[in-house]
């Protein structure tokens, strides 16, 4: 095994490389198009499978049957959350960001989204509502909802 013993890490050559493609264009799919159109009109869709409601909307149900698209009207609540202090590269954020699993009491699942709230005010069960972008800025993407914010009392 002479080779292994003789070699030093500094002897090993490294070659720089980069994986790139001009771009990916991801299709939304036939049901995704309907979900996108609803978002542009300010509606969030789920899928009804028998008497169960699932969020987010999908083409098919867990049992593989075709689901029925329905609007989820709320009331929305925080089902779980986390608070982000650093960005992807480990740099400290100016202001912590609250990310939550937002859903409704009866629905299975939910949306992962931002909640505009002070980190010490967020809790499971917090009542929230979506805040949409102005209509002309919407593109049928989940970011058409800018964030969820706590429902004002009174």
């Amino acid at each position: 095994m002479s080779l292994w013993k003789k070699s030093r890490v500094s002897d090993v050559v490294h070659v720089e490389g980069r994986m790139e493609t001009e771009r990916y264009i991801y299709t939304p799919g036939p049901v995704g198009v309907k979900v996108a159109e609803a978002l542009m009109e300010g509606r969030i869709m789920g899928v009804k499978c028998g008497n169960k409601l699932y969020i987010p909307a999908k083409t098919y149900c867990p049992d593989h049957s075709e689901g029925e698209l329905v609007e989820v009207k709320g009331p929305w609540i925080v089902k779980s959350y986390t608070i982000i202090y650093e960005d992807m590269y480990g740099a400290k954020l100016d202001k912590p960001v609250v990310i939550a699993l937002v859903g409704t009491e009866e629905a299975h699942g939910g949306l992962i989204h931002y909640v505009e709230v002070e980190p010490d005010k967020v809790k499971v069960g917090l009542k929230v509502e979506p805040v949409f972008r102005p209509k002309e800025e919407r593109r049928g993407l989940i970011t058409d909802v800018m964030f969820f914010k706590p429902v004002e009392h009174g």
């Binding site: 070659v15 980069r18 990916y24 593109r139």
Partner: peptide
Amino acid sequence: LPGVIEYTPTARYSYS
């Protein structure tokens, strides 16, 4: 189509 997403990935490597 509404809802279509475009994305350009770049992943850098140093191949040993």
